[in-house]
């Protein structure tokens, strides 16, 4: 790794000393500064798709995704501004309106990251019309289910399955608003032979889109704290550690 120099920069006025190979998001978290995210998942490759972690950098009007941006010496980053809050609420607006998110009957009610962010940002209603698409539910797997109505296409499941489990059962097909998470070659999940039924995707999923069967409304608690440990173990095994 070439990037290993120590630099100093600022996040929300706070002085931060950092290695150049850490992203602004990682550094913010290490320093107790919360930046909202949905697609980011510690221990897998950042995706940069949800656009919630966008931050402002002094001296440019461009916004940068904190999860994929590396700091530079002297950089001054703002994570909370009126503009950013407006955009973040608009992103949530678009997500809530895109599919059929009905919190009150969702397995993840109360434990959902999308719902949680709406709460955190003081969102009281959705400002754009609902698209009301007709979407299927895949209950073909013996232990788990996939409800496309609640999927926000963050691809955490795709990445965790590919990078940590190594199965690459999940991927995305179609494009734009018609994009869908698919198992293997768009087969019912229960027939996807690459699936090891490890359930990491379910735990990684920020909403109730992937869930354990048998869980009723508000009973699905996701746990993904263990993923970084797995990733760490893998790194050791591959001999691809920090230095």
């Amino acid at each position: 790794m070439k990037r290993s120099q120590i630099i100093t920069f600022k996040i929300d006025g706070q002085d931060i000393a950092a290695r150049e190979d850490e992203t602004i998001l990682e550094l913010a978290r290490q320093n107790g500064i919360r930046i909202p995210t949905l697609c980011y998942l510690e221990s897998v490759t950042p995706w940069g798709g949800c656009r919630l972690c966008m931050v402002e950098v002094k001296g440019t009007t461009r916004l940068f995704p904190a999860c994929m941006t590396y700091p530079q010496e002297g950089m001054e980053v703002s994570t909370v501004t009126e503009q950013l809050t407006t955009y973040r609420k608009q992103v949530l607006d678009l997500l809530f309106a895109e599919r059929n998110h009905v919190c009150s009957v969702c397995v993840s009610n109360g434990a959902c990251e999308l719902q949680g962010l709406a709460y955190e940002l003081g969102m009281t209603h959705v400002g754009v019309p609902y698209l009301n698409p007709s979407l299927p539910l895949d209950a073909s797997h013996p232990y788990f289910g996939l409800d496309h109505n609640r999927c926000i296409l963050c691809t955490r499941c795709v990445r965790v399955c590919d990078e940590i489990e190594g199965a690459h059962t999940w991927d995305v097909m179609g494009r734009g608003v018609d994009a869908r998470i698919v198992a293997d070659l768009n087969q019912p999940w229960g027939e996807a032979i690459s699936c090891t039924s490890c359930g990491k995707c379910v735990q990684a999923c920020p909403t109730g889109a992937l869930f354990e069967k048998g869980k009723s409304v508000a009973e699905m608690q996701k746990r993904h704290e263990f993923l970084p440990y797995l990733a760490l173990m893998r790194e050791g095994r591959d001999g691809d550690s920090e230095q």
């Binding site: 809530f96 998110h101 919190c103 709406a118 709460y119």
Partner: peptide
């Protein structure tokens, strides 16, 4: 209502 109630 920030922090008082939420969807669902």
């Amino acid at each position: 209502l920030t922090g008082r109630t939420r969807f669902g």
